[in-house]
């Protein structure tokens, strides 16, 4: 400091408070019981403190999820903020668990807390990473599937920030379609 007197460290506030959720699949419990709220934070330092404290995504057991959502939004389709929306889905091949999964997930977290989606950030609800035997997935959830410009621009930003090959398409699935699907494939409303 200029005066020579040590100044207190002031944490860097985030635009939004974010809540981390952890899902572990216990067949003796229902979905809601398995989805646990871990903690909330609203500064950069508290984000890093939490991030360093928990397991990396690649260290989670099969069937587990991490979710990061704006405070007050539950990580489920039925929440008011999510029910008219959908998600951009990044599918990862099994061989990419580890390095790519952790890098992608961290990048998504930095996009969320750093408000990387410019004018469309109001439409962003949160993100989920699913650790699954058949392939891990990262979803970025938005609130309104009908706001096509917002959805597409958010998708573009995701591809840029995650350095996804421009020739590799990613798909946006509306939650209503995911809920209603009869097979294993949900249609992409946007790519």
């Amino acid at each position: 400091s200029v005066s020579g007197v040590p100044q207190p460290y002031i944490k860097h506030p985030l635009q939004n408070m974010w809540t981390l959720w952890y899902y572990e699949n216990d067949r003796n419990k229902n979905w809601e019981e398995n989805q646990r709220e871990v903690t909330s934070f609203d500064t950069v330092e508290d984000f890093w403190s939490l991030f360093h404290h928990i397991k990396q995504a690649s260290e989670l057991k099969q069937g587990c999820d991490y979710s990061l959502f704006k405070k007050g939004i539950l990580p489920m389709w039925e929440d008011d903020a999510n029910k008219r929306g959908g998600r951009w889905l990044i599918n990862l091949e099994k061989k990419h668990r580890g390095h790519d999964l952790n890098n992608y997930w961290l990048e998504v977290l930095l996009c969320l807390i750093g408000e990387a989606f410019d004018d469309y950030h109001e439409d962003v609800c949160g993100a989920v990473v699913n650790i699954r035997a058949k392939g891990d997935k990262i979803g970025i959830w938005t609130s309104d599937a009908l706001k096509s410009q917002s959805v597409v621009e958010i998708g573009r930003k995701i591809k840029t920030r995650l350095n996804i090959n421009p020739n590799m398409p990613i798909g946006y699935q509306i939650h209503k379609d995911t809920m209603a699907k009869s097979g294993s494939v949900t249609k992409n409303t946007y790519t």
Partner: peptide
């Protein structure tokens, strides 16, 4: 209104802050 935006590099810089 205003919005608090953090660049990626800045967030990473704070990773090891006290």
């Amino acid at each position: 209104g205003t919005r608090i935006v953090y660049e990626r590099a800045f967030l990473l810089q704070l990773r090891n802050s006290p």
